[in-house]
Write a protein that binds this DNA or RNA. Structure first.
Length: 100
DNA sequence: CTAATGACCATTA
DNA sequence: ATAATGGCCATTA
């Protein structure tokens, strides 16, 4: 629990199936409220499996899906398989957002 | 040490 | 509504 990226991964493990968190919220949860961009970078090089670190459940603060190392298509597919609805490239955070 | 690079964000045009 | 802009920050070259 030393590197920034490690904190990010640990936090994200708590996001349950069928829910999402935003890059911004993750940044806030680790005490670096303005490091949302750095969070995305950490996930981009995420070395873990999607099982242990479900980084596909992290979206942008405006609800849009955001990026994914393996392609946005794959990200959307995984989210939908968990029951999360994607409309116009985004999710309803009031409905599927997870509060830490 | 400096510069560049983004899975970001909010504002402005 | 879309596009550009400036700011942000950990990591890497």
């Amino acid at each position: 629990m030393r590197l920034f990226s490690e904190k990010v991964h640990l936090i994200i493990r708590n996001i349950p199936r069928g829910r999402v968190a935003t890059y911004r919220e993750v940044a806030r949860a680790i005490g670096r409220p303005r490091a949302a961009r750095a969070v995305g970078n950490a996930l981009n090089r995420n070395p873990y499996s999607s099982k242990r670190v479900p980084c596909h459940r992290v979206v942008r603060s405006d609800g849009l899906v955001g990026g994914y190392a393996k392609g946005v298509k794959a990200k959307i597919k995984m989210l939908e398989e968990e029951g999360i609805e994607i409309r116009r490239g985004g999710v309803n955070l009031n409905k599927f957002g997870f509060k830490f």
